[in-house]
Nucleic acid binder design. Sequence first.
RNA 1: GGCCCCAUCGUCUAGUCAGGUCAGGACACCACCCUUUCAAGGUGGGUACACGGGUUCGAAUCCCGUUGGGGCUACCA
Length: 521
Amino acid sequence: MAAPSRSRAERRAHHHDPSPLNSTLDSGSEREGWPMASANSGTSKIRVRFAPSPTGTLHVGGARTALFNWLYARSQGGTFVLRIEDTDQERSSEESHQQILRSLRWLGLDWDEGPEVGGDHGPYVQSQRRARYDAVIAELLDRGIAYRDYSTAEEDEARKLRLTEQGRLTASDWPYRNLSEEQRRRYEAEGHAFTIRIAMPDEGHIRWTDLVHGDMDFDCATLEDWIAVKSDGFPTYNFACVVDDGQMEISHVLRGDDHISNTPRQIHLFRELGLRVPKFGHLPMILGPDKKRLSKRHGAASVEEFREGLWISEAVVNYLALLGWSPGNDREFFTVEEIIKRLSLKRLNHTAAVFDYEKCRYLNGEHLKQMPLSQRVDRSWQVLAEAGVVEADSEEDRERLGRVLTLLGNRFRHFDQSVHHLSAYFADDFPVDPEGATVLEGAGPRLRALAERFAALDPFDAASTEAALRALAEDQGEKAGPYIHPCRYAVTGSTSGPSLFEALELIGQERVVTRLRATAV
RNA sequence: GGCCCCAUCGUCUAGUCAGGUCAGGACACCACCCUUUCAAGGUGGGUACACGGGUUCGAAUCCCGUUGGGGCUACCA
């Protein structure tokens, strides 16, 4: 009989109760947020890990998981471990491995132990830890906790069918659990392929207090025997993960919601292995606009795309943090240091969240505003150079770029706007908005006259150009508008932008006059 | 099918644990002001407690149920 499941609120109310399963890790200081190592009798250190599988790019969801583990380690003076889970020989690739490291570094998430930095618990790539898994599985086999399963594909199929039809499996569905030595030898002799399964208890419950969800309770009768070693000899995720978390002395496992149902299986193994069971915290998923789990088809779903898309990594980190955690007040702009300082376990969200590019972009603009001008100049100059808009760097150009950026102000919110917003100030080949051409209708004579007045100016600056333009309009008995708008379009290629006269000064007399004459033809 | 997670504006959320501003902020949107354009800024606006019961003087908040969304149920992780 299943124990009555407690309501959500009731579980939350018991959020601080020590769980009998992992009482060694209870700190008693969660009321303040993240458990403090110092309150933990001084013996257990905070060790967290991020364990991606190198089967693709670092996904936004993975990045968020990595971020929270990193933030937790940094806020507690703990250790952040990076472990590569490449037990899927088919899908894992070295390229993906490298790309994940690059993405993490770009986000600023440095690891204390892991690939390329080493550590006392290595190696940190699972394919290099085979000997450890083999040793552990040998022991489990020996103790009868694990067993060789010689099921054929047909038997697996049939069992799957029974599971769907009956809702659950019973001991009789695991015919290889208690094979006699003689039978085992026969299968062996006949060279049957086998997997190794972990036998789960037929009854009882596995419970833990989740750092995010509160008390969790799984009825063992609903837990099938699971595969720990595939027929190719490689461990499965659930198995390698437990062995490694144990050997690497991981104290807290913060991962996605999708791992909740793996947790009871893993806890069972931790206990059978006599390992300290880490604390678990399951973060909600990140969704696309259609409320489905975020993926490539939703557009920029990988960190690489943000890096290549010239986003400010701190803004992405800021946004990702807000997607899994709330400061509890109205603040939304945070530097990484501020998040480390404020992050609280109690304020982790438990609801899946839709990734909103608009808001992320807004935050990018906010972070860009905070960036020192010299840095903004560096980055946008680099973008312009890579786009071939500018070539040789000069003090004068950099100084001018700084003035342009300042003039642009809030109009410039993202470095991907560099070519669009800055080209007209530095090159004669700049983007022109074809739809804006209507402002040119009948403006030829005005532009021609304007060009002549501007050509005669000395000095040529915001004040003199404005005076000249307004004088010309008045001479012709016209308003300034019909001069201003065509002029802006002719000189910058756009009908929008900063104050025209400031822009004219920065673009320079020669270019302005040339462009006016060329357009007036 | 079984097990599990989740549920406040379009989106992210505060408020839920200790019932009592008929719900606050942000992004997005609309209007107005400002204005040489576009932004920015200022002002104002609309939009939410999934549904049904119950407990209570009082429910977004507690309880039960329903519905909806998601996850796992892989020799993926």
